[in-house]
Simulated assay, not measured.
Amino acid sequence: MINKHKTAAMDVHRKNARKLRKSIIQFIVLILLALLLIKTLFNMDKYEEPDRAAWTGTDGFIAISYFGVGRSGTAKLVDKDQLKDQLEALYHQGYVTISQQDILDFYHEGKSLPEKALFLSFEDGRNDSSLFAQPLLERFNYKATFLSYANKVGNSERKFVQPKEMLKMTETGYWELGSNGYRLSYINVFDGGRPVHRREG
């Protein structure tokens, strides 16, 4: 009889211990979800501006422009893993991103740039470009220019980032906006490798 009471007490103790462990795990998961939600809603990750006073470079900069980023690569899109590898390599080699204003100041006022200066841009205004590039910009504290077409802003094509989303992107500090104009190619427009017409812009 005593053994039955001990066994029952041990079973209750085990059940209580399991419930406690389960409650702790659920609490931790809820905390993590709450932190993720707060980060998403309030953009807690902000770009940290570089110390421009420490810049001494006078040899210019390199510019890298991606047409777009996709989950998997295509003839036009770099895949998200390739983008990560490329930006990570640039970061470890000491490249520092510069803004549009930094370039203007370099050319017009003779201001210095980082010794390894990088102007980074993403063309075409695609949602997937901002989605896949944003975590990498945060990881490496990189700034990029997001270029879009004027005729894609404010229309119903949801594969392109719209003005409200663009505003949120710029608020993080990781993005600047630019425009490809109405079409990307202002001088020569090609169709299947053949020039279609010439237009001065």
Rank of each mutant, 00 (worst) to 15 (best):
S72G: 02
A75S: 14
K111S: 13
A89P: 04
D79W: 02
D102N: 09
D102K: 00
I103S: 03
G110R: 05
V78W: 05
A75L: 12
F106T: 04
Q82S: 11
F106S: 10
Q100P: 01
L83K: 00
R71C: 08
K76E: 15
D102E: 11
I98Q: 08
A75R: 08
P114F: 06
G70W: 00
S112F: 07
K76T: 14
S72F: 01
S99W: 08
E109D: 10
I103Y: 02
E88R: 06
Q93L: 04
G110L: 12
D81E: 15
G70H: 01
R71N: 15
D102L: 02
P114S: 10
Y95D: 15
K111V: 06
D85I: 12
A89K: 09
Q93W: 00
V96G: 02
A75Q: 10
G94V: 04
H92W: 01
Y91L: 06
I98S: 02
L77W: 03
L104M: 10
D81W: 06
Q86I: 03
D102H: 00
L90H: 06
K80V: 12
Q86V: 09
F106A: 03
V78Y: 07
Q82G: 00
A75D: 15
G110I: 10
E88H: 12
S72W: 00
Q93T: 09
Y91R: 07
K84H: 15
D81A: 12
Q82N: 04
K111C: 09
G94Q: 10
L90Q: 12
D105N: 11
L83F: 06
Y95V: 14
I103M: 11
L104A: 13
I103Q: 05
S99C: 12
T97G: 09
H92M: 07
Y107H: 08
D105V: 01
I103W: 03
G73D: 13
V78S: 08
K80P: 07
V96I: 12
L77H: 07
Q93Y: 01
Q82M: 00
Q100R: 09
E88I: 00
S112R: 06
D79K: 00
T74D: 15
D85L: 12
K80S: 13
E109G: 02
L90W: 03
H92R: 01
L87Q: 03
T74V: 10
S99R: 07
Q101Y: 07
L113F: 01
K80I: 04
P114Y: 05
D79P: 02
L83V: 09
P114W: 02
A75N: 06
G73N: 05
H92T: 07
L113W: 04
R71I: 14
H92V: 05
A75H: 09
A89L: 05
D85K: 11
Q100K: 11
Q93D: 15
I103G: 06
I98W: 02
K111G: 13
Y91S: 15
V96S: 05
E109H: 09
S99G: 12
T97Y: 03
D79Y: 06
H92G: 04
R71E: 15
L90F: 12
L77M: 13
F106G: 06
Y95P: 14
S112I: 01
D85V: 11
Q100F: 00
G94K: 04
K111P: 12
K84N: 13
H92D: 11
D102V: 03
K84W: 14
